[in-house]
Simulated assay, not measured.
Amino acid sequence: MSNTQNGNRLQGKVALITGANSGIGLASAKRFVAEGAYVYITGRRQEQLDQAMAEIGENVTAIRGDISKIADLDHIYSVIKAKHEHLDILFANAGSGNLEPLGKITEADFDQTFGVNVKGTLFTVQKGLPLLKSGSSIILTGSTTGSKGTAAFSVYSATKAAVRNFARSWAVDLKGSGIRVNVLSPGATSTPGLLDLLDSTGFQTQALQGFSDTAPLGRVGAPEEIASAALFLASDDSSYMTGSEIFVDGGLAQI
């Protein structure tokens, strides 16, 4: 996919992107830096974070942490506060999920998925709130699965439906603050996370073909395409948007 040329839509802004060691988070970090932002990225694996930093190249700090752990979030924000004292963009992107049909869902999988996607998103935003000021943007990563039924993916889908309501409710909570909060909901996107998940089933090729056949645009998305929408929500171009959801899904959830 072609990339838009570098600009200055985020010039001088400070951003945090969780789960940015690969996929959509990494593509967004690259785009934000190219548009003038200083970006903090987080992830659970140091080796991947180091590789992501090398790919981004400049104006980036990586902080290892698990957003489902409060102590890790406290550490992440202490590093940001010490260096920049504020945030302009908070992209709560980290998420996880497993394929388990009803009848085979385990307590451990439920706790892990809700712990990261719901609890982690909640406290990522709540603990970051003191660093945000009027004009700041909060972006939550949703999913088409939050609006559709998906076989063997009900737990993950339920977490994304919760994330969607977070934005609606927090838009009301933040009324008068000048801080906006919106949801970015990708469809099937060619990320390491999705490819690894599908590979574990032994039907990666068939599943990807199924996604392509279902979407009106006839293909899965690229992380860079989702990053372009994240840039819009992060920038002042979306200054009159809050509580909204943007789908970048090739039409998958729109028909």
Rank of each mutant, 00 (worst) to 15 (best):
V155G: 02
R180I: 06
A171K: 00
S154V: 11
A161K: 00
K104M: 09
V181F: 07
A167R: 08
A151Q: 12
G176S: 02
A161Y: 00
V116N: 12
I139C: 11
P101M: 12
Q112C: 09
A108G: 07
T150Q: 07
G176D: 05
L184G: 11
A162E: 13
L122C: 08
G187K: 11
I138P: 03
T145I: 00
S157R: 13
K160R: 14
T145P: 00
R164A: 06
G146W: 00
S137W: 12
L184M: 09
A188N: 02
T124D: 06
K160F: 11
G128H: 04
G135W: 08
L194Q: 12
R164Q: 09
G146E: 01
F166R: 05
L129T: 00
K160D: 03
G120L: 01
T144Y: 10
V116P: 13
S137Y: 05
K175Q: 08
L194A: 15
S147L: 14
F114G: 02
P192L: 13
S169Y: 14
L122E: 05
S190K: 15
G103K: 13
T141D: 01
S136Y: 04
A152H: 13
V181M: 05
G149T: 01
K119P: 05
K104N: 05
A167Y: 09
I105N: 03
E100P: 06
D111F: 12
L132E: 08
L194S: 09
T191D: 08
I138W: 10
G187D: 03
K104A: 12
G193N: 14
V183A: 06
T189W: 12
K148S: 02
E107T: 15
S136G: 14
K119G: 02
P130L: 07
Q112P: 07
Y156Q: 09
E107S: 15
P130S: 10
N165G: 07
P186K: 11
T113Y: 15
T141R: 01
N182F: 06
F153L: 09
N117E: 03
T106A: 08
Y156V: 13
K119H: 04
L194M: 09
P130T: 05
L129K: 04
L131E: 07
